[in-house]
Nucleic acid binder design. Structure first.
Length: 587
RNA sequence: GCCCUAGUAGCUCAAUGGACAGAGCACCGGCCUUCUAAGCCGUUGGUUGAGAGUUCGAAUCUCUCCUGGGGCGCCA
């Protein structure tokens, strides 16, 4: 946001380096770390170190860095739009003219509105595949992290300017589906799902799994049914289509509620034929080894890649009976994605347990001559466990159903709204409760490094205090509340505000950082960058709210503060939007 | 056995190789005739798992250990 000023400073630094005969080093800028002051800083340790190494001098690096910083500071003078320039302990600190920069930041935010922080449009297409739920199974809290993470990754990339294709790939075939149908035919033939279809489907899956383990005839029967499915027996296909749709309808309702949307739905069932053909081709080209009928069809990746130590190991691409596996459909799907769209990147949001699998798939694609294989990326995240490090499993029934969590969370949130804000209508209370509950749940999934395990427990999942979405939403509400007192009019400035409180400066500083945080988050694919930023922004606003009266201030301070409140509200709203969290007007 | 990953305050977690390792929760003490107290302020809290190395500078990079989690030919 302060690029013109920085460009001038960098030119001066470059000039200085040339003068002392040093190669030009790209300076790394960061906000000054001192509270109540607002500016940018950089250090000269690297430059000093380089110079000393080259001249083989015996000089202290921090000392030389300080000399350099001092020399640059002297060259900058006062013409570059900064209020103050100082050299401290090897750092060069540039302090903004608060009033001038405050006006500029606020004007930028108010001018751009919902697009404040949005990156300029890029031509690159990026596909993000997420929400690979299995049909005929339930939707539990373990899946929630995937759906939330995936959709926010999409939001981040979209906001950063990329052309994002949101892809969904739900497991609509496989042994779990056959097992489910087997049990259905045996015990529930003709039944239709109740209103609550996902729970019912999940219950029947658990039942099927239990029965399969106890019933001595199960294995043979399931295998026979699998064979009928594989032969496209019309009766089995009809049942499959019907029951599959029950699942898809239930999931769609849940996606809608979670705010996850998709541009493209792929299904393994639609990749199966291509997959088998591709595998046949692999066998012919000597890439896959056909061990049938006794062994499976597999690709010995290490051997093909010439790896000396075992790295990629062996990828099984087809069962010995010719039925398909994950890899059978993932390989042709990857190809289809790049055929459908000219992708700059193809991201797979799948939990960390499948890291080796995706390395195998991508390497196999590379070895079979797909030059784009290196544009595939597995975004691995850790799973959600229950206390005691218990992994949720629909097979074992050790799950917290998403609908149960949502129900409980919304009830609690509504109860708080009723207590805090009794004047609201029942409908408004419910809307706010939904926003708060979903926000809290989403935030707890996002405000954490992707690589860290989330332990789900009811108490912290339903805790709305501290670093959580409601805190940020509440800051938004407070800002809105002030603006409402002014009849939602954002005044024009009535002149320059000469003195700014430190809490005002910190708030403006935080607002000004938003565009860079967006870039960082999108580059690193880390929602944590935004969730953490949003909290710090809300903190800065609350501090301001506490210290700086707005409506009672004298002009021009009053108008300037109103504009600042509007800018803060907009920035909070924009960051929550990226996180897929609703910013309520009242709470 | 091999590979991946995590280890930071009592607990849950932050920290582009840079200034004094920061938040929240919990605990203790304050603040509502004031723009919504789902808030604010203050106090307490650290051998960054251990040890070595690289570097002017390491929670961060390298190596060796320790501990937890995960993965490794026909599950998804």
């Amino acid at each position: 946001m302060f690029q013109p000023e920085l460009n001038k400073i960098e030119a001066i630094i470059e000039g200085y380096f040339t003068e002392i005969d040093l190669p030009v080093i790209k300076m790394q800028w960061s906000p000054t770390p001192f509270a109540g002051q607002w500016g940018l800083s950089t250090s000269f340790f690297q430059a000093a170190s380089q110079e000393i190494q080259r001249n083989e001098q015996k000089v202290n690096v921090p000392q030389r860095a300080q000399e350099m910083a001092h020399a640059v500071a002297e060259r900058i003078g006062f013409e570059c739009g900064f209020e103050r320039v100082e050299a401290v302990r090897g750092y060069l600190n540039l302090y903004f003219k608060p009033a001038e920069f405050a006006r500029r930041v606020v004007a930028e935010v108010l001018g751009k509105g919902v697009d404040f922080g949005r990156g300029s449009d890029r031509v690159e297409k990026v596909m993000v595949e997420y929400a690979q739920l299995n049909t005929h199974k339930t939707f539990h809290v373990g899946h929630l992290r995937n759906v939330i993470l995936g959709s926010v990754i999409c939001n981040m990339l979209d906001f950063a300017g990329y052309d994002v294709i949101r892809a969904n790939y739900m497991g609509d075939i496989g042994s779990h589906v056959v097992k489910w149908m087997w049990n259905y035919l045996k015990r529930h033939n003709g039944e239709k799902p109740p209103q609550n279809s996902i729970r019912w489907l999940g219950d029947l899956y658990t039942e099927a799994d239990n029965l399969a383990r106890t019933d001595p005839t199960a294995e043979a029967e399931i295998k026979a049914l699998f064979a009928r499915w594989d032969a496209r027996d019309p009766e089995v296909i009809a049942l499959w289509q019907l029951t599959r749709q029950w699942s898809l309808d239930g999931f769609d309702a849940m996606f809608l509620r979670l705010g996850a949307r998709f541009d493209k739905y792929y299904f393994p069932s639609e990749e199966e034929d291509d997959g088998k053909q591709l595998i046949a081709d692999f066998i012919q080209r000597g890439i896959a080894v056909d061990g049938r009928p006794n062994e499976a069809v597999f690709v010995d990746i290490d051997k093909l890649a010439g790896e000396k130590k075992e790295k990629y190991r062996v990828l099984v691409v087809l069962r010995s009976d010719g039925t398909s596996l994950y890899a059978t459909t993932d390989l042709p799907l990857a190809i289809r994605k790049f055929n459908d769209y000219n992708l700059a990147k193809s991201i797979y949001v799948v939990d960390v347990r499948q890291s080796l699998y995706f390395q195998q798939v991508f390497k196999t694609l590379e070895l079979t001559g797909n030059s784009w294989a290196n544009r595939c990326q597995h975004l691995a995240y850790e799973i959600v466990n229950l206390p005691g490090n218990l992994t949720m499993s629909s097979r074992d029934g050790t799950v917290v159903l998403l609908e149960d969590l949502l129900k409980e969370a919304v009830e609690r949130a509504v109860a708080v709204v009723r207590k805090k804000n009794a004047d609201l209508s029942t409908e408004e209370m419910h809307q706010i409760g939904e926003a708060v509950a979903l926000g809290a749940i989403k935030y707890s999934m996002l405000d954490r490094e992707n690589t860290k395990v989330v332990t789900f427990d009811w108490e912290s999942a339903l805790n709305y205090d501290g670093q959580a979405a409601p805190y940020i939403q509440y800051a938004h509400v407070r800002a809105n509340s002030i603006l409402r007192k002014n009849k939602n009019m954002i005044p024009s400035t009535k002149g320059e505000q000469v003195t700014l409180e430190s809490s005002e400066i910190n708030l403006i500083d935080m607002i000004s950082r938003f565009p860079n945080e967006v870039i960082k988050a999108a580059e690193e694919l880390k929602p944590l960058v935004i969730s953490s930023y949003a909290f710090r922004l809300a903190q800065a606003f609350n501090d301001f709210y506490n210290q700086c009266p707005v409506m009672k201030a004298e002009e021009p301070m009053r108008s300037n503060r109103l504009r600042l409140v509007a800018a803060a509200k907009q920035t909070i709203s924009n960051s929550l939007a990226i996180l897929g969290i609703t910013a309520p007007e009242a709470m």
